[in-house]
Nucleic acid binder design. Sequence first.
DNA 1: AATCTGTTTTTTATATAAAAAAATCACATT
DNA 2: AATGTGATTTTTTTATATAAAAAACAGATT
Lengths: 298, 298
Amino acid sequence: MKTNTLYKRTFNQCLDLLARSTPGTVLASEPALAARLKVSRTTLRAVLAGLAGAGIVALEGRSKVLLRLPRAEDYLAGTDLEPLADMVERKFMTWMVGPDCSPGQSINALDLARQFGVSTSAIRECLSTFSHFGLLERQSNGRWRALGLTVDFVAELFDMREFMEFRAMERFVALPSDHPAWRTLAGLEQEHRDMLADIDRRYRDFSNLDHRFHRLVNGTAPNRFFINIQGVMSVIFHYHYQWNKKDERERNKVAVEEHLAYIAALQTGDLQQARHACGEHLKTARSTLLTSIEIATD
Amino acid sequence: MKTNTLYKRTFNQCLDLLARSTPGTVLASEPALAARLKVSRTTLRAVLAGLAGAGIVALEGRSKVLLRLPRAEDYLAGTDLEPLADMVERKFMTWMVGPDCSPGQSINALDLARQFGVSTSAIRECLSTFSHFGLLERQSNGRWRALGLTVDFVAELFDMREFMEFRAMERFVALPSDHPAWRTLAGLEQEHRDMLADIDRRYRDFSNLDHRFHRLVNGTAPNRFFINIQGVMSVIFHYHYQWNKKDERERNKVAVEEHLAYIAALQTGDLQQARHACGEHLKTARSTLLTSIEIATD
DNA sequence: AATCTGTTTTTTATATAAAAAAATCACATT
DNA sequence: AATGTGATTTTTTTATATAAAAAACAGATT
């Protein structure tokens, strides 16, 4: 049976929306609300019916009136607010770096399904995704073999990344000076400076800034294959940030400084210097990731 | 229900094997035969049972005797000798370049399942694969959107390819002179010359040679992400060869000559010259592929 | 005329069931 | 002891069923 996570999440989002209003307010039309919450009208109608059932809104024809403000207990809670695919992905990544998975071993999909408490379809979907990430592969007999988040994997990923980033950098430096990217870069530079000035409190926001900066540099020549590999990297980094909280403040501070050096080099247009700054930054990032893998698999 | 294509194919392969023998011969043991045909013993036993049922071999305990040579009518025929996934992939690629698919349109999985006469599971598997190829993408509402085998796609694919091949080439030229790759290259060079000498009859074998040559050049620094993209290219070229038979002889002749120039440049170690030869070859390949796409989508 | 709601139809996501194929186990034969 | 066979168990592949969600349709309301 399909999960109704979307319904539950939309229900809660809708409560958030209503909380900003006052009782007696007439709500917008169904199509408008559906567009606002980015779901189909079918889902929105289900939510409205739920809200009416809870006595939060009164529905009659096309009149939708807010009866009372939502309370904390109105929110739908539970473990299933996360989409199934995300949950499986999360559990799989945790399993992969855990002690039950060693590189080279064959993966038992049925067993994973039992462990994660989901059906084999969900596992298959997940395995299929990660096989394109190069974390596992399909064997001729239909089985899956774990390749693992190994030192080799990181090496190959970063070789690819370096290769791509250098190329993107060359293109970036060659952009005409009136290109909007320069303006965006200046904005990012300021954000870096702001963060550095208040690094003790704001170091956790670095991952977002990191992502945006590299996307800007790599985004000048859109190519779906590059974007694909950047997607792989995002996912790996996403989990990496979760696993390795050690020295996070110091690591991020160093990274911000490296970014600033990199940005400065881009702005002067000195390719040699930019290459050097970029290289140094990627070297740090590589060793950080390697460290966190060792931590995760210990 | 799962297909038994493997059984059927193995059955036929087994007949081929028996055809080389003479009646009265005692066959090898089950594990030996299974290893020979690269299937599990379970499948092999099913095949042996089938052969016994057809009166081709006599089974009793561990004695397996060939009673008579297989005849043409013994072979299992039918449309389902091709693995399901391959069939779906083939039909999908044909659909994608056909008039029923236009870039940007959303893909109806259920409809495709009906058209191809398979279940939605098979379609989902196929869509998932091709989405990693960049031929289509998943939308937020779970639907699939066709991106199509467009001019953009070819441009991005070849940008990536050029980029990778140039890098691989640089590494290749730097290989020590006693590296086995040089020997392999010399062998391939001879094969190219042989083919050129008899191009009228042998031009169809070029795709194989092309594949092996580029794999040699790109294979010096193994990286799963590069290999992945090469896999994408193989599939695209595979279909491209099937669609565009026009001027095939002439095209392949030109390509062989370009390969020879490229090989010669690699052997002299002149990076500048190699870069030029490689660039020329990829330029030709790109325009050939673009042409065949226009033919296919006309 | 444009937009809205109530209803119906399609389509997708997920679990389950059943057949094919692989792996494992237990015993027999060389 | 090593290898072989027969039987059993496990795992994978594929189709199908069902609920959720989206889309399409038809009147109704502004």
